[in-house]
Design a protein around this nucleic acid. Structure first.
Lengths: 123, 123
DNA sequence: GATGATATATCGGTAGTCGATATAATGTTG
DNA sequence: CAACATTATATCGACTACCGATATATCATC
């Protein structure tokens, strides 16, 4: 694995990265307590000063996908009133959260290194 | 702009982010001196310890796109031997480099905040 | 002359974001 | 109560562009 170019290294995957970020945002929002989709969107937006924002057309399919993958589990709130589907982290999801956090952190380190390089004034 | 949720804020755009990263990698690689595509790929991989890696099917269309957008300018090396298309930064590209670097840095700050949050141990 | 590295190019499959649109219950205001 | 905004979820089609595969050609080495 010391040889550069060896496949299997966990390198930056542009497609997976954006998706992974969205998943992380959801998982992080559910870290403390279960929430329903709309709440997750508000929560994410509030905690990031509006940097991250879920569109409806992105969020709900994402939640369905994550539920199908066993990362979260949804239950329709039984009470009367507006129907809400409340999601909570599964054990898999909780494990995934910390694992992905490590992975993303490595990539962020690489990105910051790149930014430093981008800012070096050419001689 | 103080009001959170105001549209027009430059928020995280999942699609644009991944593309922006790839563009930044190219621009940063050309910061000091012109290089041809294959060189850029090697350079990026070397400077990121293999975290970032360009596939050929990604790199060359990207270079064409960036040239069409006026961020870089390519010239076929006139000498004999293997043909190489050497790219250099345009003024637009140089401006874009610093602008995008600022934008990405903001997003990175948001991502790191999210990571911290993801790691907080729930009570 | 076969293999492998250098060097560029293109295409089709694929996945997922995003805007638009739909539905419906609830809160609010006059 | 009528009209409207907000809360809440869902789905679809257009679009974008990454990625693996494939092709072409030069050069070095053996």
């Amino acid at each position: 694995m010391s040889k550069p170019g060896t496949p299997g290294d966990q390198a930056f995957d542009a497609q997976g990265f954006a998706r992974g970020i969205h998943e992380l945002l959801v998982l992080a929002a559910l870290r403390e307590e279960p929430r329903h989709g709309y709440q997750i969107a508000l929560d994410v937006e509030a905690h990031s000063n509006g940097v991250f924002r879920f569109r409806h057309g992105t969020l709900y399919p994402l939640l369905h996908r994550m539920e199908a993958n066993g990362l979260i589990q949804g239950r329709w709130s039984s009470g009367a009133g507006r129907r809400k589907k409340v999601y909570s982290l599964t054990d898999t999801g909780r494990r995934h959260l910390s694992g992905e956090a490590d992975r993303v952190e490595e990539i962020l380190a690489g990105l910051m290194q790149m930014l430093r390089r981008a800012r070096e004034v050419p001689a």
